[in-house]
Structures are given as C-alpha cells and as structure tokens.
C-alpha cells in the first residue's frame, strides 16, 4: 500500500521555546483509519493543521499522496486542500447562511466544478449520510448530529484521498457520537478513504487500524 501521509522529523516551534511538535515522523497508508490522541496541548491539532496545509512547520518535511509539500507555495497548498484533503471540524463549522446542500456544494464551487455536476454529487452525498430530506434546511434548523453529517459530506464531496477530522464528535451526546463514528468507519470501509482523526474519546479508538499517541509534541511509542 502507498503512503498517503509521510512526515519526517516534523518541527513546529511557537515563539522561541514552545515546541508544539518536536520531531514527528509518521506514515499513514492509503485506506487506513487512524486516530491521533493525546492530552490538550500535546500537538494534535498542530499536526493536523500542518498535514492539512493550513499551517506551516518550522522544520521537517511532509509528503501528501506522493507530493512533497512546499509550504511557501500558496498555489500548491490550495490545490492540495481542494483535491486531496477533506476537513471535518468540530460542530459549528457550517456556513450559517447556506442550506445543507449548499454547504456540501461549497468546496466544489472553488474547484470550478460545473453546476449540474455539483448538484449531482451533493445529492449523492446527502443520500450517503442519510439526510436527503434535510437538504434545504439551514444549519440552525438541524440537530448536532445532522450538522456533522453535512460536515462529513462536505469533506468527502470533492473525493479526497485523505480526510482529517479534528474532534468530530466533540459537543455531541454519546448516542449521536456513536452514530457519527459508525458512519465514518463505514465510509472508510466502503469508499476506502483514508481517515486521520484527532480525538479525546475512547469510543472512537475502537475499530481504528492504529492509534498514534502524542505527548509534548512527540509520538509516544
């Protein structure tokens, strides 16, 4: 299997002394379902942001789907975010003025996908996550679980190789959390999408291929 993410001695220093990441080298294979855990401040979110091309490291290298990431090249970063990477954030990450369907369609607009194709793919996604009947609802009219289903659809709609999820079940009750986790795992198995999930919640660890523990910016062996 090919590596979808490969980091080499990744460093991130905030200011002079705060080593958020201190020499992280990890490999995530295509199709893997990997969770990243660690206490608050262990560097989980920083690692996700750097792999997701939202932040740049102060040292080390990152390879996404075989491409060496040049963090000084905004065009490459945008292109990777558009085509290779999908993001799922905590709740409240949807655009409040757009309906569920429009939120899902939103990334495709930036990629320049034609309108009819966007509609078709959006409908497929709504069906996949089981909220086709909620397509015209605004985020404020949806439950927390439904909102996360929309967010998951938005992350997947451009057909990324890698989905990064930062606390996808934070702010959700346990029943809803389980539903979302089951959905993510199901997508991983059926579509072969690689998942890298940051979480506090032990329930997500079940069914993962692998868990990476971080502590003080280092991988705990």
């Amino acid at each position: 299997m090919a590596a979808i993410v490969r980091t080499e001695n990744l460093q991130k220093v905030f200011g002079r002394h705060v080593h958020a990441l201190d020499g992280i080298s990890i490999i995530v294979e295509e199709g893997e379902y990997v969770t990243v855990t660690g206490r608050s401040g262990s560097g989980k979110s920083t690692l996700m942001n750097i792999i997701g091309c939202l932040d740049q490291p102060t040292g080390g290298t990152v390879e996404i789907a075989g491409q060496n990431v040049d963090y000084s090249d905004p065009e490459q970063l945008v292109s990777l975010r558009r085509s290779k990477i999908g993001f799922i954030f905590q709740q409240f990450s949807l655009i409040p003025s757009m309906t569920a369907a429009e939120n899902i369609e939103y990334p495709l607009i930036f990629s320049g996908v034609p309108g009819s194709e966007r509609k078709r793919r959006t409908m497929d996604m709504l069906e996949l996550v089981g909220i086709l009947d909620r397509s015209d609802h605004l985020p404020g009219e949806l439950s927390g679980g439904q909102q996360q289903r929309v967010a998951i659809s938005r992350a997947l709609v451009a057909g990324p190789n890698l989905v990064l999820a930062d606390e996808p079940t934070g702010n959700l009750d346990s029943t809803t959390s389980n539903e979302i986790i089951t959905l993510l795992k199901q997508i991983n198995e059926e579509m072969g999408t690689t998942f890298l999930i940051v979480t506090h919640e032990p329930s997500i660890w079940f069914g993962t291929d692998r868990t990476i523990h971080l502590s003080d910016g280092k991988v705990v062996p």
Partner: peptide, 11 residues
C-alpha cells in the same frame, strides 16, 4: 467561517 472556507479549498 473564512478560515473554514480556506480549509475546504478557497484561495
């Protein structure tokens, strides 16, 4: 919202 738009592909 703008940050999220950038994350999902806005330049």
């Amino acid at each position: 919202e703008i940050g999220i738009s950038m994350a999902i592909g806005a330049s």
